[in-house]
Amino acid sequence: MGKARFSVNGVMLVAIVFAALLLFFSLVMVDKADRRVVGEYYPIEGTKLGIRYTTLEPSGLCEGSRNTAVLKVEGTFGHDWGMALEGDALYVNEYTVTDLGITMCKLVRIDLGTYEKTTVLNDALLRGRCASGELVCMEGAFLPVDRPEENPLCRLYRMSEGAFVRERQGTAVLFLDPGTGRVLRRVWDENAYGDDFETRWIDRTMEEAAP
C-alpha cells in the first residue's frame, strides 16, 4: 500500500460523513423507534373548544369533547404557560420543537368565528393577562431552557434577531393590547425566568409593573 497523504479535506470529509451518520441514527432512527403514545385534551373554559396534543392524529384546536373532538386549527398549541380569550379571539402559544428538543414559541391569535390563525409575535411566550387586562409576553423565550442567554444554540438563534442593534442583557417583557395585539410597553427583565414572574408582572396592573 502506498504512502497515505494527509489531507485536511479528507479529514473534513470523514468527519462530516461520520457526524451525518451519527445524527441520522440518533435523531431519526431513535425517533422512529419511539412507540410512546401521547393523547391529551385540554378543554378551554367558557367555550366548546379544547386543545388536543396527540401522537396519533394531528394536534391542534378542536371543537367538541375529548371523544368527539373535530380538528379546527392544526398546530402544536400550549395552554400551560398562558392563554387568553378576548371576545371572539383566542391568544395562545404555538410551539416548534427543534431536533435536539429546544422549544421555540410564538404568540398566535385564532379567530373563533372563522378559525383563522395569525401570528401576533414571533419568538414570544404568552404568560397570561396582567391585573389591568393587557396580555403579558416574554420575548425570545425558549423552553425548557432556563437561561437562554447562556445556551449556545439559543445564542445562535438570537444572533439574527435584531442583529444590527446593540444587545441588551435579560429578557424583554411585553404588554400587549388584547383587542389589537399591539405592543403597548416593553420592559427589560434580567430575571424573567424566575419563580416570581407572576408576582412581579401578572398580579399587578401595567402601570404598577411598568410605570
Partner: peptide, 30 residues
C-alpha cells in the same frame, strides 16, 4: 476549515446525549 467542525462537535454530542442541549453547554458549548 477545522474551526467549521466545532459547532458540529457540540450538536453531535447533544444528539448522542453526551451533552444536554437545554443547559449552558460547558466546554463544548464554549
Amino acid at each position: 476549515q477545522l474551526c467549521a467542525l466545532l459547532p458540529l462537535l457540540y450538536v453531535v454530542g447533544c444528539a448522542v446525549q453526551l451533552l444536554d442541549a437545554t443547559r449552558g453547554g460547558g466546554f463544548f458549548g464554549w
